[in-house]
Structure formats: structure tokens, C-alpha cells
Computed example of a mutant assay.
Amino acid sequence: MRRTGRGRALWDWPVLMLLLGLGIVLFGSGLGLGVFVHERELVRELPADVPLFVMGLVLPAVILSAALFFTCTVRLRRELGNARKSVADLATLDELTGVPNRRHFFERFDEEVDRALRYGTRLSLIMVDIDHFSRTNAELGHPAGDLALAEVARLLAANIRTSDIIGRYGGEEFAILVPAQGLHTAAQVAEKLRVVIEINDLAMEGPRLKVTVSAGVAEFQKGEGSPEELRDRLIRDADTALARAKAGGRNRVATHGGNGQRQLRLI
């Protein structure tokens, strides 16, 4: 039985059994029709030496062929759609964490910067870094590190708005765009995410893995320069705040704003 690239059979056994049953029913119906036609002599030019079951095969064969063609076409279109989605996912999603990769994140980032410049809307950026990630890799091995990355990404993605945009920025660092929101609201989002990760131990074989994150938050500021330069300035501001959060003891949120920098603990 041939299988597709996603590991599913192109023909499912229930479909085959259904078509087989349909063929048997149609054969019986066609055979009965042939007997009826022959007995009533509705087709007088039919040679006498033509077996009756030939008439019982013609109609079922036509209908069964049409049913097979329709079923195969529907299934093939579905598999092609799944294949296209898989290719698109490979191009836009990070394989390990399942969130948008850096390239796709920056495409969305540029779109949001353009929107903020054009319509004057607010835009904030949260940079999130897993605390002591190198120690986790060294002490528990890379599988534990991969688990931490995947689980943190899942928790981050599950606890933001659908309009927010998350991406794997690099290594153990994630970036989250918060469109249409200022610094204070974005900082509240960051603190919520920090708490969610802190209270969720990661399930592993053996001891449970405790993971915390630090976050830096900054708001987009208009000014002189190209959209790319303004975007990069926002990243630097958020990175600066993140560095302060880590220097202040980790497992905390820090902000960078026009009125100076301050460390933030909301709860």
C-alpha cells in the first residue's frame, strides 16, 4: 500500500471496503437489470449467446469507476493541501519549538513597524531569555535543553493574544511583538508570561525540570532614520532591558522607556 510523505495511506481500508460493498451491490443490481431486460426482450438485438452477467458488469463498472475516480481525486487534493502546508510550515516555523523562525518573525516585525509609522499606532517588544540555559544543557544534557526550549515556547505562545507575534530570536531567546499596546501593558504581558513559566515545572523522565525566564520590554519610538533603523533601535532597547533583568538576579521583568529605565515586578 503506497503511503504519502506524511506517513498516511492514500487508500484507507474503510474506503476500500465501502467501494467493494458498493461494487457488489451494483453488480447484483446490474445482473437483475440484465435478467429483466432479457426476459422482457427489451433489447431484441442482443445476441442470444451473450451471457447475462455481461449486462450485470457494465453498469456497475461505470459507476464504480466514477466513484473510485472521485474518491481518489478528493484524497489526492487533500494530501496535496497537507503537503503544501507542510512546506509552508518548514519555511516559516522553527523545527524544534514550533513557533515562527527568525526570518518569518522579522517579516512580521517589518510589517508592524510600517503600520506603526503609517497609522501612528503603538508597538512594544518583549525579549525573553531562559535563565541558566547553558547550565541546564551541561548538567542534564541537550535533550533536557531541547525540552526546555519547546515547553517554554509552548507556554509563551499559549498565553499571548492572537494578535501578538512570537518568534524564536536565537538560541534560548524568544521575541514577542505586542501590537497596539504601550510599554506598561506589554510589561504586564511579560510579567504574566514570567509567572506562567515559573509555576510550570517541565515533565521529564526522572526529576522535574524547573525553568525560569527573564524579560526585557521596550516601546517603539518614532524618530529619524529608516524603518529598519527604528526597528533595530527597538530591539536594542528591549535587549538593554533584558540585560538589566538578568543582571538584577534573573527571573524578572525590566523595562526601557523614554523616562529612563526601571526594573519591574508586577506581582
Rank of each mutant, 00 (worst) to 15 (best):
I160V: 15
L20G: 13
W11H: 06
E198M: 08
L19K: 01
L264F: 15
E79I: 13
D239W: 01
L42E: 08
H104P: 00
F105M: 07
I235D: 04
D49R: 14
F53H: 13
A247S: 11
G7S: 10
D146G: 06
A67H: 00
A61S: 14
L26S: 05
I63Q: 04
G5R: 11
L18A: 15
E151S: 07
I176T: 10
L10H: 10
I63V: 15
V43L: 15
G5C: 05
P51D: 11
Q261G: 08
T4K: 02
R122P: 00
R115C: 03
L230N: 00
V195D: 07
D114N: 13
A138R: 13
L209E: 03
I267Q: 09
L202K: 07
L20M: 12
S29K: 02
K222D: 00
D110G: 13
R262V: 13
I165A: 07
G171R: 05
E111P: 00
T92D: 04
D146L: 07
E191I: 06
I176F: 09
G120S: 01
F109R: 03
P143D: 01
P100R: 01
R250P: 03
E107Y: 09
D232S: 15
R262C: 09
H104V: 04
L149N: 05
G206Q: 05
A67I: 02
V37H: 04
L20K: 03
A186N: 07
I165Y: 03
V152Q: 00
I130E: 06
F105G: 12
